[in-house]
Design a protein around this nucleic acid. Structure first.
Lengths: 360, 360
DNA sequence: CCCTCGAAGTAACGCGCGTTAGTAGTAGCA
DNA sequence: TGCTACTACTAACGCGCGTTACTTCGAGGG
């Protein structure tokens, strides 16, 4: 027993591989204890440190260029100040905006957002292997909460292990409805689009629809019908055409609608395209027929895909999906959750604002 | 002396706030020492652990759902396995692709990429306050290396503190030339675009130029001239028009070029647009004049901005900026650097591949 | 039989920090 | 003088882990 103790104390100390200035260095430099440094740097309320010592410590910090070690702090304090977000990062440009919103909000809250990629979605849902690994990696970093974002509004299946920390879904929802989620208010978006067209004097409106089953289409179309109903109008089924969610799909759908009225009589004076890519195709169809936007036919889009909407000629009036807001709200919700505070609603809906440009 | 020791040992132990299974738990469950667990989990070469103990330990890991604590590991091993990347995340869609490339490569190397936002660039360069803070935050996380990415090819000024760890610049370079950088090979990109047009039989080629002073314009135009020279041709100054790097700018520039030849005689049969947004505007100008793409006028772009190039009608043939490759190469370079290995070149150039679509 | 040597493990230290339970010193008051 | 109260600190522990320097035990050799 004594032997081993002695051996231990005789052992030559491991050579310290100093990669940075530590609190101990600061303490030595300032001639105080490490504890004092810790107290000053963490701005402890009821720690009594004289003003003089305090400044001496802060000067030492400056002089040595001390930089706290976030990992060590996390280990000691048992909180990491990290959130994690899982998303398909490059699939759609939308994910970026969600991340941006979340990132900025996290930054404001002095927290760090760890971004983990989950590979592209395929027909069967997300690439589950990659996703699980991503969540796992984030949990290894001891994130305090998880954000789970989809690039288009849909139901998702979240990896089991996400249940170990507070989790918030962004732009998606889980089928079981167990996790809190944040989604765009598609219905209100549909309303505002139609209301804008009504206000501009249009009463005969064509709709270029997405796949009718996806949440976006359901909501937007419902809002559309509501707004028309309030104006005493109805959606003419002949004017609703579904297509692929691409420019080509939009082109074809627009052709179909326009060519129903070769003489021009009965032709809609406005087109509500359920996304901007389709609006892009619709532009071509309209122009090809020698019609002018918005004089002959007004066009309104959805999604506000900047690169399209802002560069089409004329620039496209469209309804924006509030990605940044959803990202920010996600972080705020997570903050409430991790603080043990109640959240306002299990499913929070965020407004889709109308962006006026020149196509109406 | 004895007193204080006694007091310390009499002190009631702090209540452990257990937030997770630790190695100690695994060790207890498997009936071995914590060291043994560590050896097994880190796959130590020359540690002699019997196969039987080994499996017992792994079973315990499974049974308890043990998950290593990355922060503690980093603290003990003095290496974080983290890289940091500083970039303006949302300003341009390009940053995303760089991040994606870097992210994927880092993931392969079992490293984590911390993404720190730096606010938007303004005329005077990047928002320095935000940037310094971003770098500072990353260093606090003890990243082992830094990536610094710009959304368009240019000279940048990197925060001082970035010098404390290996740093690689992506899609930019520092004026002093001190830091290794990775940039697109603009010149080769210019060449390949022109070569494609020559091959299609065009010899009279118009160029819609960017601001002539930026690196992208300089390089691309040089490549363009080279390719023409090799074919015994020259760039007609009358056919080179600069404009704003927008669709409107491209539209105006294209109008200017086309309207110089109202009769059609002498008019270029192809347009090389130095970015896709300008190509988008050029499309409008061409179509307005009743000309067909590519039959009457071929168009080739640059940047491969998916949302534009893939949705224009006809789809735009363009030269791609290799953002993902640059991001990946950045991480690889960083890996070499942190491993103390030499890197192939101080400034690495990455090829800009031609993407054939239907506008040539 | 003793000695050496490798296999199989373990005790203990330190990474940088937050935190708790102390101590030393002084002022105030009865 | 003795006691409390307060200010201004500090010693020591533990967070979860990697790592080094041991120990123990059985097999093999002389």
């Amino acid at each position: 027993m004594a032997n081993s103790t002695q051996a231990a104390s005789e052992r030559k100390p491991t050579v310290p591989v100093h990669r940075g200035v530590t609190m101990a260095d600061v303490a030595k430099h300032a001639g105080v204890s490490r504890t004092a440094v810790s107290f000053v740097l963490s701005n402890r309320e009821n720690a009594s440190i004289s003003e003089e010592t305090r400044t001496r410590i802060l000067e030492a910090v400056q002089a040595l260029g001390y930089r706290p070690n976030a990992g060590a702090r996390a280990l000691a304090s048992q909180r990491s100040d990290w959130y994690g977000i899982v998303t398909e990062i490059v699939t759609a440009p939308f994910a970026v905006d969600i991340i941006k919103g979340a990132q900025d909000q996290a930054w404001l809250d002095r927290r760090f957002l760890l971004i983990a990629p989950s590979d592209q979605a395929d027909a069967t849902g997300l690439n589950q292997g990659m996703e699980d690994a991503a969540v796992e990696k984030l949990l290894e970093q001891r994130v305090e909460g998880l954000l789970y974002a989809a690039t288009y509004h849909r139901a998702v299946h979240v990896p089991e292990s996400a249940n170990e920390v507070p989790t918030v879904l962004i732009n998606c929802f889980d089928a079981d409805g167990k996790l809190p989620s944040i989604v765009p208010d598609e219905r209100a978006g549909g309303r505002v689009a139609i209301e804008r067209l009504l206000q501009a004097g249009h009463s005969r409106i064509g709709v270029i629809n997405l796949d009718p089953d996806i949440p976006a289409a359901v909501g937007r179309l419902a809002g559309c019908r509501e707004a028309l109903a309030e104006a005493g109008l109805e959606l003419d089924p002949a004017l609703v055409v579904s297509g692929h969610a691409t420019a080509d799909g939009g082109y074809e759908a627009a052709c179909e609608i326009l060519d129903k009225y070769p003489s021009g009589a009965g032709r809609p004076t406005a087109l509500f395209c359920l996304n901007d890519r389709m609006a892009m195709g619709a532009y071509d169809a309209i122009k090809e027929r020698g019609l002018a936007i918005p004089q002959d036919i007004a066009v309104i889009g959805f999604d506000n895909q900047e690169l399209i909407a802002a560069y089409l000629r004329p620039k496209l009036t469209t309804v924006a999906l509030p990605f940044e807001e959803m990202g920010a709200l996600g972080v705020q919700t997570l903050a409430s959750l991790t603080a043990g505070q109640p959240i306002t609603a299990h499913q929070q809906m965020v407004d889709c604002p109308l962006l006026e440009r020149y196509s109406v």
